[in-house]
Simulated assay, not measured.
Amino acid sequence: MPVNDDAYANGAHIPDGASFPDRWVRDATAFRDAMGARAQLGLRYGPSPRQNFDLFEPERTAKGTLIFVHGGFWRMLSPQDWSHLAAGAVARGWTVALPGYELCPDVRIAGITQSIAQAVQVIAGRTTGPLALAGHSAGGHLVARMCANGMLPADVAARVRHVMPISPLSDLEPLLLTAMNDDFQMDAGMARAESPVYQPAPERDVTVWVGGAERPAFLDQARWLAEAWRCGHHIAAGKHHFDVVDPLTEPDSAMLQRLLG
Rank of each mutant, 00 (worst) to 15 (best):
V143M: 08
A132R: 06
D81H: 15
A132N: 08
L85G: 05
A62G: 13
G135Y: 08
L142I: 01
A97D: 04
A157I: 03
I67L: 08
A39V: 09
A86H: 12
L98F: 11
F68G: 07
A110Y: 00
D171G: 00
I123P: 03
G42N: 11
G71E: 04
V160D: 08
S137T: 04
P165R: 11
V90I: 14
L103E: 13
W82T: 09
Y45N: 00
G111K: 12
R108V: 08
G129A: 09
I112W: 13
G135I: 12
H136A: 03
L142K: 05
A97L: 10
E173M: 11
Q40T: 14
G100Q: 13
W94D: 03
A86K: 10
I67Q: 02
G71N: 11
A87F: 05
G140H: 05
G150L: 06
W94E: 07
I166R: 01
P99L: 10
V69N: 10
P130S: 09
T113Y: 03
W94S: 07
V96G: 03
H136R: 06
L66Q: 11
D54I: 00
E102Y: 08
M146R: 00
R50L: 12
L152T: 02
H84Q: 10
G129L: 09
R50Y: 12
R75G: 08
A158M: 04
V160K: 05
H136K: 13
G71W: 07
A119I: 03
A154E: 14
V143K: 10
G139C: 11
Y45L: 04
V122Q: 11
L131I: 09
R108P: 03
L43D: 04
I123A: 10
R38I: 11
R126V: 03
P79R: 14
W94R: 09
M164Q: 14
D106F: 10
L133I: 09
V120L: 02
G129M: 14
G150P: 08
L169S: 12
H136M: 12
E59A: 15
M76K: 15
V122A: 14
P105D: 11
V107Q: 10
R38W: 11
H141E: 01
G71T: 04
L169T: 05
A39I: 12
T65L: 11
I112E: 08
L131F: 00
M146W: 00
A110M: 02
I109Q: 05
I67N: 01
V69R: 12
Q114S: 15
G100D: 15
R126C: 03
R126H: 13
G135W: 09
P47E: 05
A132Q: 10
V156G: 06
M146Y: 01
V90C: 14
P130F: 07
V90K: 07
L77M: 15
L103V: 12
E102A: 15
R126L: 13
P105I: 06
V160C: 00
C104K: 01
P58I: 11
A117L: 04
M164I: 03
V156R: 00
A158R: 08
V96C: 09
